[in-house]
């Protein structure tokens, strides 16, 4: 059985920072990731608010963080965690790929989030074809076409700004106003091919003969004033669901499946910490994720020191 001081689940900015701080605290660290290092950074074309980095491509920043972690001696493995167990002072980690059980003194859960969906008529039928959650991946096929973005937060505004450079027209439908940082919102609104519909609720993805034709929406408050916008594709950015399914049988999840932690990133299971977007928190940014990761790793180190003192 492989044994570690710290196993970090997830290699986004929170996980990679936790791993870096972990090895720098002399811990033997394993970082597990089911997809690729970077987390949500991978789907971000340009990050402009990570101090010192200027304007940087998401994957480039991810690779820099990953190389930093590797240079310091963090072990890395592609694994999807299915269950964790806490047995006295030890933790066990089970994965989807094989029967191996990994043992650790501490775990930092930094699994991030996945996009929330609307669950309205037509979504199932057109997802993956006309409905996407990644402008960088699928935006190219909408050159000179009409596109709708649903949502008004940071992701919607960032990805909408990117799509507006490709599409003939971009319509944004959001149930509030645009809520990203004001500079980005003002810039998006100023683009000549962008039209924003605030305080609306999308009720259906419309098609004809199996072909996607547009979306139907109503006034958010009254449910009236039904309108249909014809378009070629839709991108949904309406929030996130945490990747915490494997923790459902534990007691550390709060509302919406997010991890409940204190200011030290401690969960209610001693030795298990949470960091980054999967935590219940207000602001989800690369910089807040890295801060969480640093705190969680420092606390994991302190927890292990206390364990070792107990053993003496």
């Amino acid at each position: 059985m492989r044994k570690y001081d710290l196993v970090v689940i997830g290699a986004g900015p929170a996980g990679m920072t936790a791993a870096i701080y972990g090895v720098r605290a002399n811990l033997k660290v394993l970082m597990l990731e089911k997809l690729a290092p970077g987390g949500q950074m991978i789907n971000t074309n340009e990050i402009e608010n990570y101090p010192g980095a200027g304007k940087v491509n998401g994957s480039e920043l991810a690779l820099q963080m990953f190389e930093h972690a590797q240079e310091l001696g963090v072990e890395f493995d592609y694994k999807t965690v299915t269950k964790i167990e806490s047995i006295e002072d030890s933790k066990r980690i089970y994965t989807e790929e094989d029967d191996e059980v990994i043992e650790a003194l501490t775990i930092i859960v930094a699994t991030g989030t996945r996009p929330r969906t609307l669950n309205i008529p037509g979504e199932e039928e057109f997802k993956g074809s006309a409905i996407s959650w990644c402008a960088i991946c699928d935006g190219a096929k909408y050159r000179d076409k009409d596109v709708v973005v649903i949502g008004g937060g940071n992701s919607a505004v960032d990805e909408g700004t990117y799509l507006a450079t490709i599409a003939k027209s971009l319509t944004i439908i959001t149930d509030l106003e645009l809520t990203a940082d004001p500079v980005s919102c003002d810039y998006l609104r100023s683009l000549p091919n962008v039209n924003v519909f605030p305080y609306k609720r999308v009720v259906e993805f419309v098609g004809k003969g199996g072909e996607f034709t547009g979306i139907k929406f109503v006034d958010k408050e009254t449910g009236e004033n039904e309108q249909v916008i014809e378009c070629d594709g839709v991108f949904e950015y309406i929030g996130a669901i945490p990747y915490t399914d494997f923790l459902e049988k534990t007691t550390i999840l709060g509302s919406g499946g997010f991890l409940e932690v204190n200011e030290r990133m401690e969960t209610t299971i001693p030795g298990v910490f949470g960091a980054g977007d999967c935590n219940s928190k207000h602001l989800r940014q690369v910089v807040t994720a890295t801060a969480d990761g640093a705190i969680a790793a420092q606390e994991a180190s302190a927890y292990i020191k206390a364990l070792r003192r107990k053993e003496v």
Partner: peptide, 11 residues
């Protein structure tokens, strides 16, 4: 120019 493509290249 695609970030996921860069990570796929890494894999």
């Amino acid at each position: 120019t695609c970030s996921p493509c860069k990570m796929l290249a890494f894999i």
